[in-house]
């Protein structure tokens, strides 16, 4: 579904189907993700929204016995093709997971990791990039005096911002958030949301969330999925005020979930 011809399209999904073994998780999904906008995916558990998110950085490749069909164009290149360079896609499409998952390393090492695995050797460059990333993730002031202590000593909210910083360090173009606040308290959630609004100036953001208010607060566009199908896709303001599909309205008003 395309709803705004003015915007630049970053990712274009066309007639996507996805299977876990026999189970049909995504059905004929077509959608445009616009550049430097926040697109939220909402819908009840098992609707396929996380599966779709994980297609965008090829994370589903790690799950055995899965199959994808259709075309998924990232800047015009089909990333579902067999000979796609998975590593280069993952560098361009960063991901923040549902549960904060810093490595059991120091704060510094966590952020430097993405640079190191991509072959960056220059120590000064790494140091500078670590600081920049932490600043962008609004974490620098809290951790600058303890960069070399374990990242696991941070609070949950700080850990999640660290994961965001870690993702920013490899300079992605798109950032995927898979229910980033699901395990956080309201104050930390608020900080992450502020951060997302800040980050959309520079990055294309796709967020999956269970929390409809969160989608309303942070996103420009919202996609509502149900049982593997895209039911409705529209500007967030439009969808939350005048949903076109009865199913969307039922979900938004809390009739099921």
């Amino acid at each position: 579904m395309s709803i705004n011809n003015e915007e630049k399209i970053k990712i274009k999904a066309d007639n996507i189907n996805f299977y876990y073994g026999q189970s049909h998780a995504i059905k004929n999904l077509s959608i445009d993700i616009y550049d430097k906008k926040v697109t939220a995916f909402i819908g009840p558990s098992g609707c396929g929204k996380s599966t779709f998110l994980r297609m965008l950085n090829k994370m589903n490749d790690l799950v055995p016995n899965t199959r994808a069909e259709g075309t998924l164009l990232f800047d015009g290149q089909d990333i579902l093709e067999k000979n796609t360079d998975v590593v280069s896609i993952r560098k361009k499409v960063g991901m923040v997971f549902q549960k904060p998952n810093p490595f059991p390393k120091t704060i510094f090492q966590n952020i430097a990791y993405g640079l190191e695995v991509n072959g960056v050797k220059d120590k000064d460059f790494i140091r500078k990039r670590v600081e920049d990333s932490l600043r962008k993730a609004a974490l620098w002031e809290e951790v600058k005096t303890r960069l070399h202590t374990s990242a696991l000593m941070l609070s949950g909210g700080q850990q999640q911002r660290l994961c965001i910083a870690r993702c920013l360090a490899v300079e992605p173009q798109v950032i995927l958030f898979d229910e980033p606040c699901a395990s956080l308290d309201p104050i930390s959630t608020n900080k992450i949301e502020e951060l997302i609004l800040e980050l959309k100036k520079f990055y294309t953001i796709v967020i999956v969330t269970h929390n409809m208010q969160q989608a309303a607060r942070v996103s420009d566009y919202t996609a509502f999925m149900y049982l593997g199908e895209l039911i409705e896709f529209d500007k967030t303001a439009t969808m939350f005020t005048v949903p076109k599909q009865p199913k969307t309205e039922e979900y938004l008003s809390g009739k099921f979930g």
Partner: peptide, 9 residues
């Protein structure tokens, strides 16, 4: 997953 998502092989 975190490692793969950062482009590690």
């Amino acid at each position: 997953e975190a490692s793969y998502a950062l482009g590690a092989n």
